[in-house]
Amino acid sequence: MATRDNILKRIRAANGRSAEASFQEEQIAGRRLRSHDRGPLPRLDWEPAARFRERCLAMLSTVDEVERLADVPEAVARYLRGLDLPTSGVCWPELAGLDWVSAGLAFEGRPSRGDDMVGITGAFCGIAETGTLMLLSGEDWHATTSLLPETHVAVLPAARILRSMEDGWDLLRREHSRLPRQVNFVSGPSRTADIEMTLVMGAHGPFRVHVVLVNS
């Protein structure tokens, strides 16, 4: 702990402060930590659903829309067949109860092992400003499902499209007492431009991200 204390001591000295943090300093920092003040935001005056769709496409995701959750398997089947992709894989357990079989699909509610070609997840919310999915990890929200398969399909209730990342944090604070092990913001498929600045999809994560919005 000597190292830790030395470092903190040097920081205080560098800032011209006394050896121990004063009540006033802790007040200032404490207020800031609790207040969650937002800095200046850019103009966010668009209609969230339309903006979300537009930004998803800009980040090279694709978007579909269905009325009810029960319509998801048909929509996924259409998408996968349209691109000639495999029709089986893994999904989050909360989606395992959907009637995949009638749509000619086979999805198992378990974590991905690495050889699954398609992964279907839900999402905590969508962020319209950037066309982003906010995903939480958890007992039944496997982080690998949106990462290892070549195709990631995310099912998102349209009502959970928020304007900004700040709105996402507020919702998270309202619905969960603390952060899960991992929060991932996903904006489109994995990509790299490390060779001659040329953009290539599917660096290590999914080649494709497809969002299915559920209206009701």
């Binding site: 007992e139 603390r178 092990r181 991992q182 929060v183 994995s190």
Partner: peptide
């Protein structure tokens, strides 16, 4: 880019 593809926040090990 308007945003990078993956922003990952890690808070502790596996729960």
């Amino acid at each position: 880019q308007s945003i990078s593809n993956y922003l990952s926040f890690t808070t502790g090990p596996k729960r």
